[in-house]
Nucleic acid binder design. Sequence first.
DNA 1: TTGTAGGCGTTATCAG
DNA 2: CTGATAACGCCTACAA
Lengths: 343, 343
Amino acid sequence: MSPRRHSQERAPSQIDVARLAGVSAQTVSRVMSGQPQSVRPETARRVLAAVDELGYRVHAAAASLASGRSRILGVIIVSTDRYSSAALGVGIEQAAAANGYTVTTAAVPDHASSEAFLDAFDRLERQGAEGIVLGVPVELDSPAMRTRTERTPSTRSERTSMDPDAPHAVDQRAIARLAVDHLLDLGHTTVWHVAGDTFWLESDQRREAWEEALRERGITPPPVIPGDWTPESGYRAGRTIAEIPSATAVFASSDEMAFGLIRALHEAGRSVPEDVSVVSVDDIALAAYASPALTTVRQPFEAMGRAAALRLIARIEGKDAVGAVPDVHPELVIRASTAPPRA
Amino acid sequence: MSPRRHSQERAPSQIDVARLAGVSAQTVSRVMSGQPQSVRPETARRVLAAVDELGYRVHAAAASLASGRSRILGVIIVSTDRYSSAALGVGIEQAAAANGYTVTTAAVPDHASSEAFLDAFDRLERQGAEGIVLGVPVELDSPAMRTRTERTPSTRSERTSMDPDAPHAVDQRAIARLAVDHLLDLGHTTVWHVAGDTFWLESDQRREAWEEALRERGITPPPVIPGDWTPESGYRAGRTIAEIPSATAVFASSDEMAFGLIRALHEAGRSVPEDVSVVSVDDIALAAYASPALTTVRQPFEAMGRAAALRLIARIEGKDAVGAVPDVHPELVIRASTAPPRA
DNA sequence: TTGTAGGCGTTATCAG
DNA sequence: CTGATAACGCCTACAA
């Protein structure tokens, strides 16, 4: 069982190419790794011709074993179909490919235990990942995690208080700030908050910043309304808020929740933005097509992914720069879900 | 530059473990690969203890080189943040992990040339992928592609006329059928169609089936309105349709387009579903929170991903079954965007 | 510019 | 049930 190859015999190796081209295996290696100045053009041409004829391709595992470098970037993601994960992934892939790296993923269930994370980490290390992007809310403080991140460079895609030294990650507190200030500047006297899944570090960061922003203006924050990123949870939150006549402004931690929230508000006879203003976070593709179109704080997911990968690659290669790291500032996009409170 | 390891010295190897446990390397190998009956429990325990103490982990590249099996599944995806890609990915990952496989991805830009696909395929083969999931609309008919798929088992996640022998992929024609029949059964006299990006095989399949379904009932299909999956394109299509008073039913090829479509219709003073009914495809998380909630044909993306991966693994291992392949029938979800035409 | 020797960490094979 | 030995395909180091 488990046949080694699927059709015919074994794949052509460096030696096969060398023989056909009439050179040594080493020369083939040099040509494949593209060191221009070390092989005579004519020789290179012969090698390339042989490569082509045989359909030779470098065996990554062998190369990795011999060189000690895998050029593999690991990504730990949670098994969800959330827009953000996908967009982040696109950015990571892109930066990796641009630098000759390959991306290997390890998924963990949503709300997984820290053992599950460690396990994913281990799987990635076993595959030879030289760096790992943490797309999940892992506690980096545990001893087990510490030994791992010490051994294999790792990075987050968002900035949290856990690693404030990640200058190229999105500042979650700034996001809350942008949302709250916008609402307050519009004239609302307070802002309610529908939080994201508390399992995620971002949720707390935003909640704290929301509270802080309110207090700074001398406002006592109303109770937090829990959510979990999903439109369903937003809907539930909306039903709660609909029963609070004094609530005129809400900061929801994700666009998807805003969709649910607004639906609930409408069903309860409260219109948006006339009766209550809503600002959310993410700016997913559909945000502009909600009814009303969502005012939201955009997170540049793709750029965040690129930034995380580049950061990692720079660390792996010990360089300071691997191309310009993209800007990842959050940005308030004003559309139709916010307005001044009714006079 | 390019240090081989990042902290201290080299990682512990099989031999280190063997020495510590007082056994041969081969025994360590046996224990690691979990062949229960071939090692005495007591010996295994000693080995495991050594493994634990040293923090040993199998070096995948070395194992792959020696065994000829990488247990890597490749996935070619297009760089988009579409919900479907993410959900598909989740399913693939899941099935792969459950069977001890690792997933490596190669992204190609949307609308990439076939060279770009071949390139992605090659990258994956170089990494040692034993099977490849094609999450992109590749032409499988070219000679270049044929040699590759012959060498490395590959599969699609959707069923198309190109490979009608994929019984576990979603039947795109059935999707269109479900949509059109629902609308016609409601009493509409014809159904307009907003197509998906023609770059994708699904688009054509659905368009054809839509046409067929109409003709079967003696209806001449109206002209197709082009789209590209995005809400923006749906919006544009909506403006067109709004100017056709006789249009009372629309089949849009994606939920995202339906969002844009409905927005345009509303802006033109035509209400949904009173004036025009809309059914779309996918049933993304937000479909239920559109205004009105979308009647849509659900594609079980996660199950599709799982099915594709399982299919592939079965082929790789030459087995007939690797656990039950999930059902991937599309399903009509009736919500509020469809109704009988006005009397 | 090119070639030779040696070894990377693991598994297959065969012997005991 | 356990061990010795020989690959696996490539790259580093050094020699020519």
